[in-house]
C-alpha cells in the first residue's frame, strides 16, 4: 500500500532540483566489526557525498542496522576507518559527542522520552547540548513540528500519540539539532500499515531539502523514488551497490535476485 502511494508520484525527486554535491560527508574504509567471535561487518567500504539519499536493504541479520549505528558510534568498529564530516571516529568521547551533534538518528521504535512532552523532547538537546536559550529552542521546535505536520500535539506526551505521530516527532527531534546527516534505522518497520505513508511522506519532504540520508528500510517504493543509490547487504558484506533503476530491474548478484524475488513476491 505504502509502495503504491510513493510510487505514484509523477516526478522523480532528481527532477525537483535535488543535487548531489562533490563534498564527501561520510567515508568508510576497510571497516570491520565483531560481536565477540561473530564477524558482523566485513570489509565495508562506502563513500557518501553531500545530499545523497542511500537506501540500505538486505535480509535480517545482514548487518545493515549495525552499519549505520557505527556511523554515530552507537556501535564501535574494531578495524578500519570511519570519517564523518572530516572527523574520524575514535574512542575520544568529546569527538564522538561532536559528531553526534551533526548526525541525527531515527530508530525503529522511535525512542522518544516518555516522561517529557513532545515539545520538551524536541527542545531538550538544543537547550542542553547546544546551549540554546529555551525560547529559541522552543520556537525552532515548533517550526519542525509544523514541518512534520503535528504542531497541535506539542503539549502531549509520547504515550498519547499514535505510532506514526511518534515517529514524526522522533524525526523532528533529530532535525532540531540541525544535523548534516540523517540516519534512519527501519523507521517504518514498527508501524501499522496505514501509518507508514505519513512517515514516508515526511522523509520524502526531507529528501527534497537536500539532506544527506542513509536509510535502512524494506520500503522498496521509497527506495525507487527517493534513493539515488541502493546498497544490498548480506552476511555482513556489501554485496551490491547501484542506482535504484538498475538495482531493481537488473540485479547482478544471485543473492540480490533471491532477496528481491522474496520481498517483491506479493
Amino acid at each position: 500500500m505504502a509502495d503504491q502511494n510513493v510510487e505514484t508520484r509523477d516526478t522523480p525527486l532528481a527532477a525537483e532540483g535535488m543535487t548531489i554535491g562533490e563534498e564527501e560527508v561520510i567515508k568508510i574504509v576497510d571497516m570491520h566489526k565483531w560481536y565477540g567471535q561473530f564477524h558482523v561487518l566485513k570489509n565495508i567500504n562506502l563513500t557518501v557525498n553531500k545530499g545523497e539519499r542511500i537506501v540500505i536493504c538486505g535480509p535480517s541479520g545482514s548487518g545493515k542496522s549495525t552499519l549505520i549505528r557505527c556511523i554515530n558510534r552507537l556501535e564501535e568498529h574494531q578495524r578500519g576507518q570511519i570519517v564523518v564530516n572530516g572527523n574520524e571516529l575514535t574512542g575520544d568521547l568529546k569527538h564522538i559527542e561532536l559528531i553526534r551533534r551533526e548526525v541525527g538518528m531515527v530508530f525503529q521504535h522511535f525512542n522518544l522520552f516518555p516522561h517529557l512532552t513532545v515539545m520538551e523532547n524536541l527542545a531538550l538537546a538544543p537547550i542542553w547540548v547546544k546551549k540554546m536559550p529555551r525560547r529559541d529552542a522552543e520556537e525552532a521546535a515548533m517550526t519542525y513540528l509544523k514541518r512534520v505536520k503535528i504542531p497541535e500535539q506539542a503539549k502531549k506526551y509520547p504515550g498519547q500519540l499514535s505510532g506514526g505521530q511518534q515517529q514524526r516527532v522522533a524525526i523532528a527531534r533529530s532535525l532540531c539539532m540541525n544535523p548534516k546527516i540523517m540516519l534512519f534505522d527501519e523507521p517504518t518497520s514498527a508501524l501499522d500499515p496505514e501509518m507508514i505513508k505519513e512517515v514516508l511522506d515526511v522523509m520524502v519532504e526531507l529528501a527534497k531539502t537536500g539532506m544527506t540520508m542513509l536509510c535502512v528500510t524494506h520500503e522498496m517504493g521509497f527506495a525507487k523514488t527517493v534513493a539515488n543509490r541502493v546498497i544490498f547487504m548480506d552476511e555482513g558484506e556489501i554485496i551490491e551497490e547501484n542506482e535504484p533503476e538498475e538495482f531493481f530491474n537488473n540485479p547482478q548478484h544471485d543473492r540480490t535476485k533471491l532477496f528481491l524475488s522474496q520481498i517483491l513476491a506479493h
Binding site: 525512542n111 522520552f113 542542553w128 547540548v129
Partner: peptide, 22 residues
C-alpha cells in the same frame, strides 16, 4: 530500555546529562 540510552547518545548528550535528564 536500551533505546532511551541510545536516543540520548545520538542527540549528543553527555553521560551525566543523559543520566540526569533522561
Amino acid at each position: 530500555p536500551k533505546g532511551q540510552y541510545e536516543a540520548a547518545d545520538s542527540l549528543g548528550l553527555s553521560y551525566w546529562k543523559s543520566m540526569a535528564l533522561i
